[in-house]
Amino acid sequence: MTSSLLPEDVIALAQRVVTENAAAGRKLALAESCTGGLVCAAITEIAGSSAVLDRGFVTYSNEAKREMLDVQEDIIETFGAVSPATAWAMAQGALKHSDADVAVAISGIAGPDGGTDLKPVGTVVFARAFRGEEEINAEQKLMDGKTRAEIRRQATLVALELLLP
Rank of each mutant, 00 (worst) to 15 (best):
L69V: 11
L163W: 02
I76N: 00
V52N: 05
T123A: 14
G115E: 10
K146M: 13
R128K: 15
K119E: 04
G115Q: 10
T44I: 10
E8D: 15
K27M: 12
E134A: 14
V125N: 02
A87D: 04
D9H: 15
S83G: 04
V104G: 06
R131S: 08
A129C: 04
P84F: 02
K96I: 00
S98Q: 03
A89K: 00
G122A: 11
G36L: 08
A103M: 02
G145S: 08
E134H: 09
D144S: 14
V17L: 02
K96G: 00
I136G: 00
A100T: 04
R66C: 10
G145C: 07
K141Y: 12
V18I: 08
Q92G: 01
V52M: 08
I106C: 13
P112I: 13
G37R: 07
G114P: 03
V104D: 01
R16F: 05
C40S: 15
R66Y: 03
K146S: 14
A41K: 06
E150I: 11
S3H: 12
E73M: 09
L5R: 15
A24K: 04
T116D: 01
R66S: 10
I75H: 07
S61N: 07
D99T: 12
D113A: 12
A85G: 02
G48Y: 06
K141C: 12
D70R: 12
L95C: 09
I43K: 04
F126G: 07
R153K: 15
L13H: 03
A87P: 06
A22Y: 07
G132D: 10
I75D: 06
A23Q: 13
T35S: 10
A159G: 14
K27S: 08
E150C: 04
P120K: 08
R148P: 03
K65N: 00
S98A: 01
L95G: 07
T156D: 04
G80P: 10
V10H: 06
S50L: 10
A129L: 06
H97R: 14
P112S: 11
T44C: 12
S3N: 15
V58M: 03
P112D: 11
L118P: 00
I46S: 05
C34D: 05
A14D: 06
F130L: 11
Q15Y: 10
A149W: 11
Q15W: 09
R153V: 05
T2A: 09
R128C: 11
V158T: 11
G132Y: 09
L69C: 03
A149E: 15
S33W: 08
V58H: 01
L95V: 04
L5M: 11
A87E: 04
A103L: 02
T123P: 12
G37T: 05
V52W: 10
L157S: 00
K65F: 05
S3Q: 14
I46V: 15
E134M: 09
T59N: 01
K119L: 09
I109T: 07
T156G: 04
A47N: 11
T123D: 12
Q154I: 09
T116M: 08
I76S: 02
L157W: 01
V125S: 02
E150S: 11
A42F: 04
H97N: 13
K27I: 02
D113E: 14
G36C: 09
